[in-house]
Design a protein around this nucleic acid. Sequence first.
RNA 1: GGGAACGUAGUCUAGCUUGGUAUGAUACUAGUCUGGGGGACUAGUGAUCGCAGGUUCAAAUCCUGCCGUUCCCA
Length: 480
Amino acid sequence: MGKESVGITASKKNDFSEWYTQVVLKAELADYAPVKGLIVLRPDGYSIWESLKDTFDKKFAQNGIRNGFLPVLIPESLLGKEKKHFAGFNPEVFWVTHSGENEVGDRLALRPTSETLAYTLYSKWIKSWRDLPLKMNFWNTALRAEIKATKPFLRTSEFLWQEGHTVHSTEKEAKKEVFKILEIYKNTVEEELAIPVVTGKKSEKEKFVGAVFTTTMESIMPDGKALQMGTSHFLGQNFSKPFEVKFADKDNVEHFAWQTSWGVSWRLIGAMIMVHGDDKGLVLPPKVAPTQVVIVPIYNSDEDKKRVLEKSDEIKKQLESKSIRTHIDDRNELSPGYKFNDWEMKGVPLRIEIGPKDISKQKVVLAKRYNKEKTDLGFDEIEKIDLILNEIQTHMLESAREEAKQNTLNISDYTEFKEKIGKGGFFNANWCGKQECEEKIKEETGADIRVIPFDKENKEGKCIYCNEQSTSVPIFARGY
RNA sequence: GGGAACGUAGUCUAGCUUGGUAUGAUACUAGUCUGGGGGACUAGUGAUCGCAGGUUCAAAUCCUGCCGUUCCCA
């Protein structure tokens, strides 16, 4: 068999885009749907999403947030209630204009996001301060037409996500919620996906349309571009006013409520692929890997086969008793070498090779995916595998942090900035806070303000563009 | 937003310039051997050449439209 035709043929370093697409398709995470910009999730891809969903659900629940479900169709009259919000989304809205042969009266939008729908309901449900806070989350898909370049997980016209919508009686409490959610996002992405993130605020220009302010977490990808990993918005009363989300307070005075909305999408899967993958394919962080350990039995005679499979099964049971997701690759028709490459392409964190030679020595061969290390592991050490998986998880985050650090640069000279932006990276640069400078920089370099880190607000210095008094040190980068 | 390329079996691909019923590999099925890093041999299955029109005795090939995919640049 031609090695070229089966594995990943593009190099991550030299041909990043092509490499990414190949990994998604060949590792069988997703495939293209017959409609432009839409993808289909295959079991391994969906399993990773389910794993993230489970983690988020637990954390949301601990924070008093409950799940609900909203319909996909939103009447135009509702969507248009908050003018700026509508204008922001309108270009990419899919419209339903017919039911069968009949035209519908009020056009129906396939939700680009659900604020307008959720808050219509919220205004019905909320009457008193006793009804607050109202904290709900929705797992669904959103639809935003992507006219041009689409890429699996990163830019698709329909994407899986969760959108949370909370309502509070005070501004302070709502703001606290915004930051609490962002913290949950950050922890989850770093702990589960082993991707380091920078948290902070979006600039006025980049904030969510309709929000008072937007907090965000951003990560740097190996090609030097920034990826927005999730956002948590403080909506203030911008939506509660048009949608009349109001409540009678303890003093019997009616107030408009304070709101938040927040979301992460399957983009996180795209980030995971980019950050950890290599030229052999996907590399999965153990915590989200659908299969954590794959056992490849090796044998020739029927007698050996029986012994090896029996031992494999024993190891599998031992691992499963510790909740380690284990698979035995007993496909008879394939050679061990083929299987090794196959599972490496799919990114399974640990591989156990076991043959007659190993059994006689009371050990197996253990191969780690993320650093390609191969060692012997005695039968009596099998129980340590959960610790090894944890170690891998930790190391993956550490090395991703190291890489991110090397791609982050402090910069104060605009000429130098323009020279270096081509290679990508995060650039910490002083900014005066004026949108004009932000726009000029975008125009001249293609880089925008990804995030103003929380610890970099109110920093003195000189704006990299206009040299005037700076107000903060945002991260500039070219983004996805 | 601007530009370029591409679409032929599950996958990759030859053929297209100069129209004549599609090449090869791999995968798949069966068998024998093999088995510690992408195995070998033998025999078989699998394609209305992206879709819809048009030109023609005849279209994968020429023309038009549509759909889809990829890459590069802002």
